[in-house]
Computed example of a mutant assay.
Amino acid sequence: MKADIKQKSILLFEEKGFSETSIQDIVQALGVTKGTFYYYFTSKEQLLMDIHLGYIDDLLERQEKIRQNQLTNCEKVMQLIALLITDIANHGPSGKVFFREMRHLCEENALEVKGKREKFRKNLEEIISDGMAQNEFRQGLEPDIIAFAILGVTNWSYQWFNPAGGISADRLADIYSDLILNGIV
């Protein structure tokens, strides 16, 4: 039931927003009582935090698997881009809630989530730095700025990317990888 509450809440938060979705809306959509909700979550904010941690912890775990693979740094960057785009394709509502609703977390919870987001970015920076050190990427790059750029391009896709539209997640990841690794010149 906890997973059902989370999943239904993600859909409602995506549709109506966190502030406009009440606990009553959630339990009514599931056909359960508020007591059922409070058995699993002490508050709507705790539910939102659970959604955020589930999302970022899953990304960090999958990122770590990519980092540990015996791949070139270029291949790791490409796989991370694909990870982020396919995640939007497969879990779009969760991504929207993750990026859009973090402002509703209390300061302590927001800091915890921001720390994990920063860890994801720092891991990407490390791959870029390693790629420079191993002459896979050109010298003179600013790994922190490149990591921000990659995350900006990929993460913003949750706003417009429609996996049922004219382009697949794999194709979009290939386009982004080509753009990021080769530029447009």
Rank of each mutant, 00 (worst) to 15 (best):
D57I: 07
T154H: 04
I51K: 00
E61D: 13
Q7V: 08
T86F: 03
G165C: 10
D178K: 11
E126I: 09
E61V: 06
E136K: 04
H52D: 02
P143A: 10
L47T: 06
F41Y: 15
K34V: 06
R103V: 15
R171H: 09
V32Q: 04
S129A: 15
Q7Y: 05
D50S: 15
P163C: 10
G115T: 08
A133I: 11
L141E: 09
H104R: 02
I26P: 00
D170K: 11
I56K: 05
D50P: 01
Q79D: 12
F13I: 11
E107W: 06
S19E: 15
E142G: 02
I5K: 00
V77T: 07
F148G: 01
S129E: 15
Q46C: 05
K8P: 00
L80F: 06
A3L: 13
N162Y: 06
P163K: 08
V185A: 13
G166Y: 05
L141Q: 10
L105P: 04
T33A: 14
W160A: 12
L181V: 10
K34M: 07
V185D: 12
D25Q: 05
R138L: 14
K114T: 07
F13R: 06
D58P: 00
D130Y: 03
A164Q: 12
L179D: 02
A3R: 08
L172S: 04
E112Y: 02
E108D: 13
L84E: 09
G35D: 08
E118H: 06
V97M: 05
N162A: 10
D57V: 06
G31N: 09
L47W: 06
E20K: 12
K65Q: 12
E64M: 03
W156P: 00
Y40A: 00
V32Y: 08
E112F: 02
Q24G: 13
V153D: 01
D50Q: 03
K16F: 13
V153A: 15
D178G: 06
R171T: 14
G54P: 00
S9V: 07
E45K: 05
N69G: 11
Y176C: 12
F161G: 11
L12F: 03
D174G: 05
I85R: 01
E118F: 10
R121G: 06
K8F: 00
N109R: 11
L83G: 01
A110W: 05
L53S: 03
R103L: 13
Y38D: 13
G183A: 11
D57Q: 14
T21G: 03
Y39H: 15
R138K: 12
A3F: 05
D144R: 07
D174L: 12
Y39C: 03
E45S: 10
F120N: 08
L179I: 14
I180E: 03
L30M: 10
D130M: 09
T72D: 02
D50K: 01
D58W: 04
D50L: 00
L30G: 02
G115P: 08
E118M: 14
G131K: 06
I180G: 07
G140R: 11
D87G: 15
S157P: 01
N73Q: 14
P143I: 08
D144E: 13
K119G: 03
K116T: 06
R138C: 14
I128W: 07
G152E: 09
E61L: 14
I81G: 01
S94G: 08
I184F: 14
D174I: 01
L179W: 08
F148T: 02
